[in-house]
Simulated scan of single mutants.
Amino acid sequence: MRLTYKPTERKPGRSFMARQDKIPCIEQDWHYHKELELIYFIKSTGTRYVGNSIGNFGPGELYLIGSNVPHLFRNHKEYYENNQEIEGVDLIVVKFEKEFLGETFVELTESSKIQMLFEKANRGLKFSKAVSYLVHSHMVGLVGSQGLASVIGILNILDILSISENCKTLCAEEISHSFRKDEKERMAKIISFLNENFDKKIELKEVASIANMTPNAFCRYFKKRTKKSFSQFLNEIRIRHACKLLIEGRLQIATICYQSGFNTLTNFNRQFKSLMNITPTEYMKKYETNVEVA
């Protein structure tokens, strides 16, 4: 996998793009584009990479990704194995440029909150499910709308999002201009390798060789670019996968530990509680009683 730049997808005569995808699985590389992107998952689960942020995603979640922010939404492995129990993916994607209604639009006094929303999107935004519920009908209606009705539709969505306080920034700092093109491609190779091998033993020198660096140089580079140590970043990928298995409730915690790439249950418990502020057992029980964990 390499970082790819995706050109504008909107059709001639349209100021933005809106589509609904019903597909078996998400097939994409780590990528970026000039447009801001709204992604609404109706059906789908997996792991998200936005800038230097890692997390799981699931049904009913809504994200806003800023201009030129590298990102990847990847389904869990079973989606790519023709598993008949998997329902597939149903999502809505809306892409638009900051100036899609003209350069002076975001400078209007009435648009000040939307301008702030666009700025916050440079760190990636995840909205609460309550907000997703508020915009659900607007997102669905936007896909088939045309003409002025489509413009009114997207403005309604942006207005709701701009005044909502129920959103979470995914990255500690703006990401859109923190990587040069060659660095983005190098990081894409690293993320691809980790995504495919996190459940196995990974040697530091093996990852460093992918980046064409010595282990020491790689550690300095990785920490500078992601604001996280390599081991912390890898553990986050493993813990997010463990969360998915814990929610499913089909496996014993010890089995989940090893399937997530940890070699001891003690280390797994310690790393899980450090990241999630709760033990694996407590996490599983929360979902057994249908109480959502933040």
Rank of each mutant, 00 (worst) to 15 (best):
R2P: 04
T4G: 08
Y5S: 03
Y5N: 09
Y5E: 08
K6Y: 07
E9F: 01
E9K: 00
R10S: 04
K11R: 14
P12D: 06
S15G: 03
F16R: 00
A18E: 05
R19L: 12
I26G: 05
D29E: 14
H33S: 07
K34S: 11
L36I: 08
Y40R: 03
Y40V: 00
K43Y: 02
S44Q: 09
S44T: 01
S44D: 03
G46M: 00
G46T: 01
T47V: 07
T47Y: 01
T47P: 03
Y49A: 07
V50H: 00
N52T: 13
S53T: 03
I54W: 01
N56E: 07
P59N: 05
P59E: 03
G60R: 14
G60D: 11
N68K: 15
P70W: 05
F73I: 02
F73G: 00
F73T: 01
F73V: 01
R74M: 00
H76G: 02
E78L: 03
Y80T: 00
N82P: 00
E85G: 10
I86E: 02
V89F: 03
I92N: 04
K95S: 10
K95A: 09
F96R: 06
E97A: 09
E97P: 04
E99V: 06
T109R: 15
S112R: 15
K113I: 04
I114A: 03
Q115I: 02
M116C: 10
N122P: 08
L125R: 03
L125D: 05
S128N: 10
K129M: 08
K129R: 13
K129T: 02
S132I: 05
S132C: 11
Y133I: 09
M139L: 15
G141N: 15
G141E: 08
L142R: 05
Q146H: 08
L148H: 13
S150R: 11
V151R: 13
I152E: 06
I160R: 14
S164P: 12
E173K: 09
E174I: 11
I175Q: 10
S178Q: 07
D182P: 07
E183D: 10
K184T: 04
K184Q: 12
E185Q: 08
R186L: 11
M187L: 12
M187W: 01
A188C: 10
K189D: 11
I190K: 05
S192P: 01
N195Q: 11
N197M: 03
K200L: 12
K201L: 13
V207L: 01
A208S: 14
A208K: 09
T214V: 06
T214A: 12
C219L: 13
K223L: 12
R225N: 11
K227N: 15
S229G: 15
S231Y: 13
F233A: 11
L234Y: 10
N235S: 14
R238H: 14
I239G: 10
K244E: 04
I247N: 06
R250A: 12
Q252S: 14
A254D: 14
C257V: 04
C257S: 10
G261R: 13
F262E: 07
F262P: 01
L265F: 07
R270Q: 12
F272R: 09
N277P: 03
K285W: 06
K286G: 08
Y287K: 05
N290K: 14
V291Y: 09
